[in-house]
Amino acid sequence: MSDDLLKVEGLKAYYQMNYFGVRREVRAVDDITMSIRRNEIYGIAGESSSGKTSFIKVLAAAIRPPMRIVDGSVKYEFKGLAVDVATATPEQIEAMRWKHLSYIMQGSMSVLNPIRRIGRTFEDFAARPLGLRGAAFRQRVIGHLERLKLPADVLNAYPHELSGGMRQRVTIGLATVCHPEFIIADEPTTALDVVVQKEVLGLIREIQQDMGSSVVFVTHDMSVHANMTDRVGIIYAGRLVEEGPTRQMFFAPKHPYTAHLVASLPRIGDTAQRPALEGRPPNLAEPPAGCRFHPRCPLAVDKCKTEVPPLVDVANDHRSACWRSADVQPLVAPQAPQAARGVMA
């Protein structure tokens, strides 16, 4: 068994539509090559509509028209099951679900069945994979919910009787109770207060470590990436533009977009805006030529407008797709200690 649980190669996944006779193609995932190792938490960040959800939908084999894999492969090597999502049969995908792979969709608190009590939903999804029934099953679930700071009562509740953050924790509970080998989570903690969020992140990491499993975690919250992940990958306009060990991504980014992203995090005490990125996110139906970041990049040179920079090694275990990666400077030291912050005085 290799060190990689998942290998993605040259993946292209587009939304191909016909609007009133006009063909439209949104190239949401455009030539991504990367891998996820066993026993790691891999964070994915990038601006709104850059293709993060589209990418992990492919990883989770949740591909629906008009999305189509146009090229490339997505190969898993689970314990006792090898699957290429690009060519897998529905049966293979079914076999992979829950036991091997679970997927927490963005906004997934809305996918809970509205007319089924939470307890029933747990039975539907988890009883069989766990091989437990009756009181033993209930005990297991209650113990699990407790770690998500949810009282046992939620099992008797219907989804609408729970707050947004409680529903979000229920879906995390569903996705983790069977301790799968691979967990894919898309913005799973957006509705949680910072106290509970920390608990929930801690739980996910504990499960990951207990099982030596792997987690792909998508969030806009860079401070979550900083504290939760082993590696971070940055997606810009459908492409992976940089990936590396978390600490290096924050302190020594090698792509101008990453440098911007890790410095953009607003902090308590800010009374002025941090420098924002000029310009608008690119249109994925007609992405800019060359480096897709060039219209907004402070370091752009002529070459960037025409030639696509390949994702290449720039340091140990660290890759970047930028012609000028050697010239990238961190925008700010990631965080000044609290006492030094002027506004607090």
Binding site: Q197, K198, S223, A226, N227, M228, R247, M249, I268
Partner: peptide, 20 residues
């Protein structure tokens, strides 16, 4: 106070600090 103290920072990026 707990709320403010629980805000994650990027100061120790990569150190995996999630304790309160």
């Amino acid at each position: 106070r707990l709320l403010k103290a629980s805000v994650l920072s990027t100061e120790d990026a990569g150190a995996g600090k999630l304790a309160t």
